[in-house]
Design a protein around this nucleic acid. Structure first.
Lengths: 233, 233
DNA sequence: TTATTTATGATAGTAATACTATTATTTGAA
DNA sequence: TTCAAATAATAGTATTACTATCATAAATAA
């Protein structure tokens, strides 16, 4: 046995359900597949998506290019895969953390904090480093949809996890103020700005007002101020 | 003479000052150079930046790949060039349109409208189609800085026009409310969201609340609501 | 147990991309 | 008219993004 004698049904591993159209062979079902995910995250995090190639990935794993191509058609689908995984994981965290909270204001604050904070690596997901994934989302997240084939990808439901999250946040916004007119736009603004203000803070600080402390808590304060002023009656 | 006998000093052409580090040879100074800009905008608009190559560009102009490389080191610098040109042009429009306006609230509204509206082609800029450029900014704008060489590019002042605009908008925000704590972050939020909500509206409409009318005026209303609630005392 | 599917490894090959280099020809300014 | 600069034409390289083939190892079914 490969996992040191621990029966599969005893491992407490969090599984995120993925869209099968994203892959050719399910990477969760083999060691090679899990290595592809793990090393992709590492390489994209370290060198950016443009510099990432299946050849480098194969070398880093110790397999061949053809081996990677058996799992993913191309690097763009692999990017969408790991990004979808991230949004699924965030959705899980959101449900978990807001489970017993009644006050929608507190829920919305939780959302803002969750999206803006660089999490610790979640040990219940062996082959995924959530902290690196969060960094990838900041720098590469929008590249998933900023293509000339967005609509084709959207038809195949590639952005469902993102849209589900946006809807969930929109619902919380409506709980806070049922009359607010732009719950989805405000939700997508929160999600995108949590990442973009972080990118600006670290790389183009004059586009923000966080240059002194360079801390995530400043972004959270900005977003809370923005959001709660927008939705108050 | 190529321009039909009209002396150069009589042409009323708007010139945007560009950072010379962006090019090898100034494209404004020759017909070939102007063609490179014109056809680049056309091709990136039509097929997206990923599908854009110097070979296709050369073919579309009727020159060779080597000819294009004499003007621009690579396609990324060419993208930054046309994006910088756009921000320079927007800055000019902003100064022009808010020139005699005293009320900062009206100025800020002008900014939001300017950034959110797909302009008519400006005839004072012969080889540039501003309407296509606006579409390029929506789909490709963030790719200018979402790279692993942002900081190097930033050191070379490649993002100065964008930062200048952000500062100008930040100043208007402070005129509206000198106590507002996040003028730069709010400015970059306005600029980015004017484009991103437009992209979402057209390609991933469930991320917005504009799916019915799909009109820019809805985005303007959303942004005005967001901004003026954020900055009110 | 053997037979057989299935995943992987190893290797090769192609078309396109992102360049660099060389030489010849044209153009336009002094 | 001369001379320098810009352009055109052509060739060539390394890398990328794939596809195809065949052998072998591991899991599984008969």
């Amino acid at each position: 046995m490969k996992n040191g004698g621990i029966p599969n049904e005893m491992k407490l591993e969090l599984q995120i359900k993925m869209n099968p159209s994203l892959y050719l062979r399910d990477p969760e079902q083999s060691e090679l597949g899990k290595n592809i995910i793990k090393h992709s995250i590492q390489l994209i995090h370290d060198n950016g998506f443009e510099a990432f190639t299946f050849k480098k990935l194969a070398e880093s794993i110790g397999t061949t290019e053809a081996g990677v191509y058996r799992y993913f058609e191309n690097k763009h689908k692999l990017l969408i895969y790991i990004i979808s995984w991230y949004w699924g994981w965030i959705q899980f965290q959101l449900n978990y953390q807001t489970n017993n909270i009644k006050d929608p204001i507190i829920k919305l604050k939780k959302v803002i904090t969750l999206l803006s904070t660089n999490v610790e690596d979640d040990i219940t997901t062996g082959h995924v480093d959530e902290s690196q994934l969060h960094q990838i989302l900041i720098s590469e997240g929008s590249k998933a949809y900023l293509t000339n084939h967005v609509e084709k990808d959207n038809q195949q439901q590639f952005f469902k996890p993102y849209k589900d999250l946006c809807n969930a946040v929109g619902d919380i916004i409506l709980e806070c103020n049922p009359k607010y007119k732009y719950p989805h736009s405000l939700a997508s603004t929160i999600i995108e700005m949590a990442h973009l203000q972080n990118f600006f803070m670290n790389h183009l600080p004059s586009l923000t007002d966080f240059s002194k402390s360079k801390s995530e808590s400043e972004i959270i304060k900005y977003l809370e101020d923005l959001v709660f002023n927008a939705i108050r009656d």
